[in-house]
């Protein structure tokens, strides 16, 4: 009878290994998930965000389009807002530019400076971009404005994730 009984030492060994194992698993699993998660997330279609802008109302003059979307940031979601400068080019193709200055990230404005008409102007350090988003040499920005992929759904403009050119 006493032979089958678990000794104090064995008991402690078992329990400690067990608990240790759980703790290790608890630490490792989230790490594995971190590593694998981005692969599992689906990309594409769902990344497009609807705006209130009718595509038919767009002209060759860049207009400001504001949109808002739900952003999941860690464990709480917040209402995020974004902006795009949108116009139709000579071929009637919709162009949507990110307003984020490629210098240090201020918001650029179309015709924001009276001395530089038909340009995007950054009020922070005088960055300039031509209408197609190309940075004007001699001003602080070192790259062209990012471009949003666009599509039209039921007449409304949808924007994807802005990408560098």
């Amino acid at each position: 009878m006493s032979k089958n009984r678990v000794t104090r030492r064995q008991f402690l060994n078992y329990t400690l290994t067990g608990v240790g194992g759980f703790m290790a698993a608890g630490m490792l699993l989230p790490m594995v998930r971190f590593a694998v998660d981005p692969v599992l997330q689906k990309k594409g279609e769902s990344d497009f965000i609807a705006t209130n802008q009718k595509v038919a109302d767009l002209t060759t003059e860049p207009t400001r389009v504001d949109y808002s979307f739900e952003q999941q940031d860690g464990w709480y979601s917040s209402e995020e807002t974004g902006t795009a400068w949108v116009y139709k080019d000579e071929n009637d193709k919709v162009v949507a530019l990110s307003p984020v200055c490629k210098h240090l990230g201020c918001t650029v404005n179309w015709n924001g400076d009276k001395a530089n008409e038909n340009h995007f102007y950054c009020p922070c350090h005088g960055g300039l971009y031509t209408k197609d988003g190309t940075n004007v040499p001699g001003t602080p920005p070192i790259a062209a404005l990012d471009v949003f992929p666009t599509k039209e759904v039921d007449g409304f403009l949808h924007l994807g994730k802005a990408e560098p050119r």
Partner: peptide
């Protein structure tokens, strides 16, 4: 928050 977005770089 909005102001910071407008003038982030300065």
């Amino acid at each position: 928050g909005q102001l910071e977005k407008q003038f982030k770089g300065r």
